[in-house]
Design a protein around this nucleic acid. Structure first.
Length: 779
DNA sequence: TGACGTCGTGTTTTT
DNA sequence: CACGACGTCA
């Protein structure tokens, strides 16, 4: 290949000695200990490019990242790096993603061996809690006495430690509560199976089980993924460790990157020993330390080093940079959280008006999601656009979950969480009451069948034998004729939609579902709240547009998986000009020119719930360290004298993590003695807009637009456009679709505010497309 | 059976 | 403060 040498040198160009050593390391285990800002993403991407340049097939590479967004970005960077040098589809064929998404794919493919239906659905937090409540009820335990959330936490940590219900009751029980949890766990797991569902932890645990039980299947994956790279290795848990370990034992090409100082997920069962013991697991490992920081000014790094140095359980590391001459880190005391927020808003306004920075250069970071509120309010007043990461996510909104429930049910009718959601919530007035539900659930629970099966049996559509329940003495309950009628309608609807799935594209299927289920008319009261909900539901159609080109059955699987495994940062916008509000946890791996860390107080950072154990305090310290090291140019740390918690005012003192910082590294005194009232650092606590004009009451609207993580329905046609579309496409017209290729229009039909165009494509398939969405071109 | 009101309770971080 | 569970009323 003529341009090969160019490509080769561009892969290695500009790397420092250590990075180069990591990128070009020979086959075998490699551990890269990478301090913040030391270019670890760079090392990972260049390493993969290097492997490709050495003739390794992209099909043989697996890269595990912490977020889907990171995977996406890494793939793009590799594509840019190698271009078409090794064929144009190189980077696309690398397997990249989070542990959860990779495992989901493995289970979809091979889970059958351990009894997992290929149509499984993924249960989120909400679904899990519902299921735990159901399990509690069935066992006859009071859900008030045994908080479902605590039980869920126990189950989750058991699963992360690879303990199934039997293991847990025999090994994991050390208290009365554990014993209860063990019983619930057992029933909960049965319920998951009946619903053909898995939870987040199952995704990991079941793949370990699969690989351990079926060496031949494991061998297939070992042959496939001969090169394995893992990012953020310090945050892997036992299950993830086992996955990687099983996979890499044969070829031993394991390349992990991590930093013990940035381990912040021990509460999610991450085990820092995974990285500490790497050299023991792989004695032949090459270990490379990346200590040069390319991100932050020396002034910021100094503060970071002093903060982390109070941790005892770490090997000392010396971060250095040659970026000096920055501003000192500013520390400010605010009177309360409003004052703190106003100060930040004013500072951002000041810096942007100087023209030095734009809004997207700023991030505000905090320990708990609830701290974002006063900041949001201040930003609204000061008209600062922002996006907020986390909190209530798009996919957690009620109407979105409602629509997803229909989709999940189309995909897998045994998913009782979705079925119940549809029956109980929306649209109301289905005519299926509590009594009926109780009867059906009893039947389901006694016969060990799904709720869906129970309904079909009660309706006489199926027999007990047909669904695999052999209980000749079981009495099939009689239902009221009204309830029966309603159930028939619901079952009919789902069957009908399942048929539509084989005909329509995914966005069109959602559109149809909204209409046929009555959900659309349910939301068409015209009230503002309903309008917004409808819009959210329709945003889902726009998102599904990405899947319009593949077979809908397949599209549904991919779509539901993406939705379920979407992380907070995955929804983040990189383009818009807006300030980012984000938790310290979610900020890991990101960087901003100017960072504000708020709530640097005892009780918040370290958090009150983490103050009992020293190891917890150390984790809080690492959290502070992660935050500080996100800043490239300017860092602001603030804490509030008063803070409203729960409605009551609390008085807080500055965080202990500030205590180790020499005062001359900071701009702003550390008033460990003496407290001052409002106005110490701010001239006033009453906000003024920078322009001095009055601001509108509906402040949220202003920024509300800017942080919606998903497109508004701007690509829906207005009715005036509709005419145009109908005139544009006529039967017999030849059209081109970006993904399906050329085809002939068979039929055009008005569908509500849109038009449906039926096209037969040259490839032989016939699809019904929404005119507003399909991006059809006439030829 | 549904809608509305009161009371009680609980918030760390997330795939 | 805000949300959910529960009870009462129509």
């Amino acid at each position: 290949m003529s341009n090969y040498p160019d490509i080769y040198s561009s892969i290695l160009e500009g790397l420092n000695d250590k990075q180069l050593e990591a990128v070009t390391a020979p086959d075998g285990p490699v551990l890269v200990l990478a301090g913040p800002g030391s270019g670890k993403t760079r090392v990972l991407t260049h390493r993969i490019a290097f492997l490709l340049s050495q003739g390794v097939s992209p099909f043989n590479i697996l890269a595990v990242t912490f977020t889907n967004k990171a995977a996406r970005e890494m793939r793009e960077r590799i594509e840019r790096l190698v271009g078409g040098a090794f064929g144009s589809y190189e980077a696309r064929n690398i397997t990249m993603g989070t542990f959860h998404s990779i495992c989901s794919r493995v289970l979809r493919r091979d889970g059958g061996a351990i009894g997992i239906s290929p149509n499984f659905v993924i249960y989120d937090d909400d679904d899990q809690i519902r299921l735990i409540k159901q399990a509690l009820n069935e066992i006859g335990l009071d859900e008030k006495q045994y908080a479902p959330r605590s039980i869920q936490a126990r189950i989750s940590s058991a699963k992360s430690a690879l303990l199934d219900p039997e293991d847990y009751s025999s090994q994991g029980v050390s208290s009365y509560f554990d014993e209860i949890a063990a019983r619930v766990y057992r029933r909960y797991q049965q319920l998951l199976e009946i619903n053909q569902a898995v939870d987040f932890d199952d995704l990991l645990m079941k793949v370990v089980l699969l690989w351990k039980s079926y060496p031949d299947i494991l061998q297939q994956y070992r042959d496939r993924w001969q090169y394995v790279l893992v990012d953020e290795y310090q945050d892997t848990n036992r299950a993830q460790y086992m996955l990687i370990n099983l996979l890499t034992q044969e070829h031993r090409n394991i390349f992990v990157v991590g930093d013990e100082d940035q381990g912040i997920y021990s509460w999610r069962a991450a085990d820092i020993r995974n990285i500490l013991n790497f050299e023991r697991d792989y004695p032949e490992a090459k270990v490379i330390l990346l200590e040069q920081n390319y991100r932050s000014y020396q002034e910021i790094l100094d503060v970071a080093s002093h903060i982390i140095s109070s941790n005892r359980l770490r090997r000392p590391k010396k971060l250095w940079t040659n970026k000096s001459g920055g501003a000192l880190v500013r520390v400010r005391e605010a009177y309360d959280e409003q004052d703190e927020a106003s100060y930040i808003a004013r500072e951002i306004s000041r810096l942007t008006s100087l023209g030095e920075y734009t809004y997207s250069d700023f991030a505000v970071m905090y320990r708990t999601n609830s701290q974002s509120r006063p900041v949001e309010e201040a930003f609204s007043r000061y008209r600062i656009p922002y996006q907020i990461i986390g909190g209530t996510r798009f996919y957690e909104r009620r109407e979105v979950k409602d629509v997803l429930a229909y989709l999940r049910l189309i995909h897998n009718p045994h998913d009782a969480a979705s079925l119940r959601r549809i029956i109980e919530n929306t649209p109301s007035g289905r005519g299926i009451g509590k009594g009926t539900m109780k009867t059906l659930e009893d039947l389901a629970s006694r016969a060990h069948i799904s709720l869906w099966d129970a309904i079909e049996i009660a309706l006489g559509i199926k027999s007990l034998e047909e669904v695999g329940a052999f209980l000749p003495n079981l009495e099939i309950p009689k239902l009221q004729s009204k309830a029966k009628e309603s159930l028939k309608q619901l079952v009919g609807l789902i069957y009908e939609l399942r048929e539509q799935r084989d005909i329509l594209t995914l966005p069109h299927l959602i559109d149809t579902l909204l209409i046929k289920s009555g959900y659309a008319s349910f939301l068409s009261s015209g009230a503002e709240e309903d309008l917004e909900r409808l819009e959210n539901a329709r945003d889902l159609i726009s998102i599904a547009q990405d899947y319009a080109a593949i077979d809908t059955s397949e599209a549904l699987v991919e779509f539901l998986q993406e939705v379920a495994l979407q992380s907070d940062v995955d929804t983040m916008q990189n383009n818009g000009n807006q300030v980012t509000l984000i938790t310290l946890h979610a900020a890991k791996g990101l960087e901003y020119k100017v960072v504000f860390i708020i709530g640097f107080e005892e009780g918040l950072l370290p958090h009150a719930r983490s103050m009992d154990r020293e190891s917890d305090i150390e984790e809080e310290c690492r959290l502070a360290y992660v935050g500080v090291t996100r800043a490239m140019e300017k860092l602001y740390i603030s804490y509030a004298f008063h803070r409203n918690v729960f409605g009551a005012t609390q008085t807080n003192v500055p965080s202990r993590f500030l205590a180790n910082i020499p005062p001359d590294l900071l701009d702003g005194s550390l008033p460990s003695l003496g407290r001052r009232g409002p106005g110490r650092l701010t001239s006033t606590t009453s906000p003024r807009t920078p322009s001095g004009s009055t601001y509108p009451g509906g402040a949220r609207n202003y920024s509300g637009q800017s942080y919606r993580p998903f497109p508004s329905n701007s690509n829906f046609v207005s009715s005036s456009n509709l005419e145009r579309i109908i005139q544009e496409y006529k039967p017999g017209d030849r059209v081109r679709h970006p993904k399906f290729g050329e085809g002939v229009v068979l039929k055009v039909e008005i569908q509500g505010e849109d038009a449906e165009v039926e096209v037969r494509f040259a490839a032989g398939s016939t699809k019904k497309l929404l005119a507003s969405m399909a991006r059809l071109q006439k030829i």
